[in-house]
Design a binder for these strands. Structure first.
Lengths: 153, 153
DNA sequence: GCACTCCTGACCAAGAAGGTCAGGAAAGTC
DNA sequence: GACTTTCCTGACCTTCTTGGTCAGGAGTGC
């Protein structure tokens, strides 16, 4: 139940790309790496994965760089996380709807399904445009603005 | 963002203990392992961790076994997951409230906080008693009963 | 032709995941 | 007191993941 460095890096780099979208020119990997303090070579691998998933595009050579394949308000955080981490909320590497529980844990499946659903309501709501502007969807903003949400447990 | 075998096993074993709570006698590890089809020796390690976290108790020898340290309706799934997996929704192994984001990813922190909060609303609501009876709290039941929640993505 | 930048695969160290094995230490029974 | 039962503990093991680095190849623009 943790978020990997890779996913964190990927979203941060994508946020930079979203903010640069108005510039109408590709952004170099190096600039992304510096802006977000991410190891360059590792970041390039991540950007490649995002490219393979059709989230970013790239051009090589002088004046080359990366840019978002779609407008920033059409790319969700969920997409990016899935691109680099794979499916969200799998249990023992299999999707919760495929697991068969027996005996007294029969209803555990519904719990894991609910877990996945709740993750989706957050991750699929927030777009890169929301992230950059800071105007998060109300569902997400409400969750994050509760005092209780900020305390460790 | 996945659930480990260990966490899944731990909750399932705890559910069996919850169901056996009325019996007023300890349950052998072997019986738990068989009921939920979990490798016995691995399960014993897990039960030991649960014991160290004060969730179960145990007695050795003939007539020995495991039982819940508290009533089943006072033990949440969140507690069990934390006992075996550690803190929920950490990013790069640090709690989201401690991370400093810069540039265009400044608001990513709120997103991860919201992710954690949404996980908590599910995992901290469901008790072992709910799990065994199948009567999940309405918030959780609603999430799990949506058709959409059951499709892969 | 040359500089620039992405693209790709190989590699690597450390740690986690998912177990197994062997023995020790209580608790109950005869 | 011996014996069985069951938990307790640490050591070990294999495979995969995480979080990178390195070296070179391949487009692109001037």
């Amino acid at each position: 139940m943790r978020v990997s460095a890779k996913a964190d890096y990927a979203v941060r780099a994508a946020a930079e790309l979203a903010a640069a979208q108005s510039e109408e020119a590709p952004v170099k990997g190096e600039r992304l790496a510096e802006a977000q303090d991410i190891p360059l070579q590792f970041l390039e691998h991540i950007l490649l994965e995002l490219k393979h998933h059709g989230i970013v595009r790239a051009r090589r050579g002088a004046k080359g760089g990366y840019w978002l394949a779609r407008p920033a308000d059409e790319v969700t955080v969920a997409e990016i996380v899935r691109a680099v981490e794979g499916p969200i909320a799998h249990v023992q590497s299999t999707p919760p709807e495929d697991i068969e529980y027996r005996g007294n844990s029969k209803h555990l499946q519904e719990v894991w399904i609910a877990v996945r659903a709740s993750l989706r309501t957050v991750l699929e709501q927030v777009t890169l445009a929301d992230l950059v502007s800071g105007e998060l969807p109300s569902v997400v903003g409400d969750l994050a603005s509760s005092k209780d949400a900020w305390v460790a447990r």
